[in-house]
Nucleic acid binder design. Structure first.
Lengths: 107, 107
DNA sequence: GCGACGTCTTACCGTACGGTAATGCATTAC
DNA sequence: GTAATGCATTACCGTACGGTAAGACGTCGC
């Protein structure tokens, strides 16, 4: 298996795809039309295309559900692809992450 | 200040720029020619262009040193831009990160 | 001063990407 | 069966991006 970080970072370069991942992380699973409802400026096929890119990168998985297609984050791929990078730069953001947690607990 | 995550992820979409960041993280600071030595397939101005992109994203800082230009990672920007994203998906990669640490200690 | 060096800048080119529109292919409703 | 729905796929277009090449600018050695 080749290094997938290239596909991963390229897939996350687009803000629409990052928002799709955010929506999936928040709702667990979503269909294409449910996702498309959050993007009024985009045509449905555009969302489908982005989902294809995310599938190609291995970041999401799709399961048929009647005539719908239900998408979810592929936790394993996300983890294995991100962990090395996160670990490498941990020293740079660990402080900010701690501050973020403090701010959350203070609120 | 607008959301900088767009510039950040776009800057990291290119594998050359990610490798530049890796080299800076490893060596601390490097000049353009020192960096260019690691990329035999690229012309020097190409490296400079990538560095400009990284500077525009706020990921690196440059300080003059005679006729050289010494680059270093901007830890603050890196941290503040990445921390929210890392925190959001922490559940997905925390397990893999722990396994990565275990593997490192086993070795 | 002058020339060599290091870097930035600009112009240019090919390709890849995001977007829409149109078509095809299942599945559901009637 | 027929029509409508949901999604994938293809073709196409404009733009942005990565790359090189050439020139401009400041700095060092002489």
């Amino acid at each position: 298996m080749p290094d997938r970080s290239d596909d991963l970072f390229r897939a996350m370069a687009d803000p629409t795809r990052r928002r799709v991942l955010d929506l999936l992380a928040e709702h667990g699973t979503l269909t294409v039309s449910e996702l498309a409802a959050h993007f009024p400026d985009l045509v449905a096929s555009g969302i489908s295309k982005h989902l294809m890119a995310l599938r190609a990168a291995g970041l999401v998985t799709a399961t048929r559900e009647g005539r719908h297609q239900r998408y979810a984050i592929d936790a394993d791929t996300m983890a294995e692809a991100m962990a090395p990078w996160v670990a490498r730069y941990e020293a740079y953001w660990s402080g900010a992450l701690a501050r973020l947690r403090d701010a959350a607990t203070d609120a």
